[in-house]
């Protein structure tokens, strides 16, 4: 199944990726190839088969005790941040 350019652009937007117009045909083509390839799954008979989200059977979520184990390390954590002021991460103005 070939993806249209509009579909590729829609997916890119949903994924917050900006594709160069020059790259678009390449993504259009390769994504169409991939969609064809994975479309092969359609032929598998999976009637009555439950989806498997985890590779190990029978495991359940473990719970942790409700304890505060973390300290304030925001100076350290914000060393990787491109833009901070007064302890806040900065982004362009968000309009609600």
């Amino acid at each position: 199944m070939a993806l249209t350019r509009a579909q590729v652009e829609g997916i890119a937007h949903l994924a917050r990726l900006e594709l160069d117009p020059a790259e678009l045909p390449q993504y259009e083509q390769s994504l169409s190839r991939i969609v064809d390839f994975i479309g092969e799954l359609e032929r598998a008979n999976t009637a009555g088969v439950a989806p498997m989200a985890h590779p190990l059977p029978g495991l359940a979520q473990r719970l942790r005790a409700d304890e505060v184990t973390e300290r304030d390390e925001h100076d350290l954590y914000q060393r990787n941040a491109p833009a901070v002021a007064s302890g806040l991460y900065l982004v362009p103005k968000v309009i609600e």
Binding site: I38, E42, T46, A50, A53
Partner: peptide, 15 residues
């Protein structure tokens, strides 16, 4: 459904 769930079903078949 067609892709993600289907693939996870196939995954169970493989397992």
């Amino acid at each position: 459904d067609a892709y993600y769930l289907k693939a996870q079903r196939v995954r169970r078949l493989i397992a």
